[in-house]
C-alpha cells in the first residue's frame, strides 16, 4: 500500500493522527511565508501585503468569537433547513415519478443560478438580514442535497429493494429500514460538500449584506486595509471548516463502522 493511502486509512478509520508529511508541508509554508514577509521590499511588494506571522498571530488573538459562533450557527441552521426541505421533496419525487418529471427541470434551473445572483435577489427581495442569508444558503445548498438524495435513493440496489418488498414493509418502514441506511454514505458525502460550499457562500453573503459574522469582519478588515486581519479571519474560517468536517468524519466513522 502506498504511504499516502495508508495515511488515509488511519484518518478514515476514526483513529485520527496528523501525518508527518502534512506537518512538514505546513512548516515549509510557514517558513516561506515568514521569509517573504521579511523580504517584501526585495520582492517589490508593499510590506503590509505580506504580514509577518507574528502580526497575523496578534490579529488572531483579537478575533471576536461571537462572530464565529454567529457564522457557524447560520451555516448549520441553513444546512439543516436545506436538508429537511430537500429530504421531503426528494422522497416525494422518488415516490411519485410524475412529480419528479415536473420538478427536476426546475431543480436543475435553480442549480444553474450563480451564487452572486442569489445574493442580489435576497438583497432585493428581503429586508431581514438573517432571512437573506438563510435564503441564499437554502437556495444554493438545497438543490444539491435534493439531487444527491434522489440519485442515491434511485441507486439503492434492486436486489435489496425486491428483498425487502417481498416482506411487505409499509412505506415508512421501507424508508427507515432500507433507504436511509443505504443512502447514508452518500448523504454524509453530500453534507461534507455542502458544508464546504456553505462556509464559502455564507462568507460572501455576510460580506455583502450583514453586520455580524466572519464575512462581515472580513469586510471590515478590507475597509481598514488590514491584511493581517484578513488572513486571521481566513485562517479561522478554514479552521472552522476543518473542525466541522472532523465532526462529520467522526459521525461517519461511527455510523458507517460496518464498512470494510
Amino acid at each position: 500500500m502506498r504511504p499516502s493511502a495508508a495515511a488515509e486509512v488511519v484518518i478514515s478509520g476514526g483513529g485520527w493522527r496528523l501525518p508527518r508529511e502534512a506537518i512538514i508541508a505546513l512548516l515549509v509554508l510557514l517558513v516561506l511565508w515568514e521569509l517573504a514577509s521579511r523580504n517584501a521590499a526585495v520582492l517589490g511588494v508593499p510590506a503590509f501585503a505580506i504580514p509577518s506571522l507574528e502580526r497575523i498571530a496578534k490579529s488572531l488573538i483579537t478575533v471576536t468569537w461571537v462572530d464565529v459562533v454567529v457564522t457557524v450557527a447560520r451555516v448549520l441552521g441553513a444546512l439543516l433547513c436545506s436538508f429537511a426541505l430537500a429530504a421531503l421533496i426528494a422522497i416525494w419525487m422518488y415516490c411519485v415519478p410524475r412529480v419528479e418529471r415536473y420538478a427536476y427541470p426546475l431543480v436543475r434551473l435553480l442549480m444553474a443560478v450563480p451564487v452572486i445572483s442569489w445574493i442580489l435577489f435576497a438583497v432585493l427581495w428581503f429586508k431581514h438580514v438573517e432571512f437573506r442569508i438563510g435564503f441564499v444558503l437554502v437556495a444554493v445548498c438545497g438543490p444539491l442535497f435534493l439531487v444527491d438524495m434522489l440519485s442515491s435513493m434511485k441507486g439503492v440496489s434492486k436486489e435489496l429493494r425486491d428483498m425487502i418488498h417481498s416482506f411487505r414493509p409499509s412505506t415508512s418502514q421501507l424508508f427507515r429500514k432500507l433507504m436511509l441506511p443505504a443512502i447514508l454514505p452518500a448523504l454524509l458525502t453530500s453534507w461534507k460538500i455542502n458544508l464546504s460550499l456553505a462556509i464559502r457562500v455564507v462568507t460572501i453573503a455576510e460580506l455583502v449584506g450583514a453586520v455580524t459574522g466572519m464575512g462581515h469582519q472580513l469586510s471590515v478588515a478590507q475597509e481598514l486595509f488590514s491584511v493581517a486581519d484578513v488572513f486571521a479571519w481566513t485562517l479561522v474560517l478554514v479552521a472552522v471548516l476543518f473542525a466541522l468536517e472532523a465532526v462529520l468524519n467522526q459521525i461517519e466513522a461511527r455510523v458507517l463502522r460496518w464498512r470494510v
Binding site: 436486489e159 435489496l160 425486491d162 428483498m163 417481498s166 416482506f167 411487505r168 432500507l178 441506511p181 443505504a182 447514508l184 458507517l256 460496518w258 464498512r259
Partner: peptide, 14 residues
C-alpha cells in the same frame, strides 16, 4: 411469504 434469493441479499450495514 418468505424468500431465499439467488444471492443472499443481506443488508451490509446490519
Amino acid at each position: 411469504i418468505a424468500t431465499v434469493f439467488q444471492q443472499d441479499r443481506l443488508m451490509p450495514w446490519r
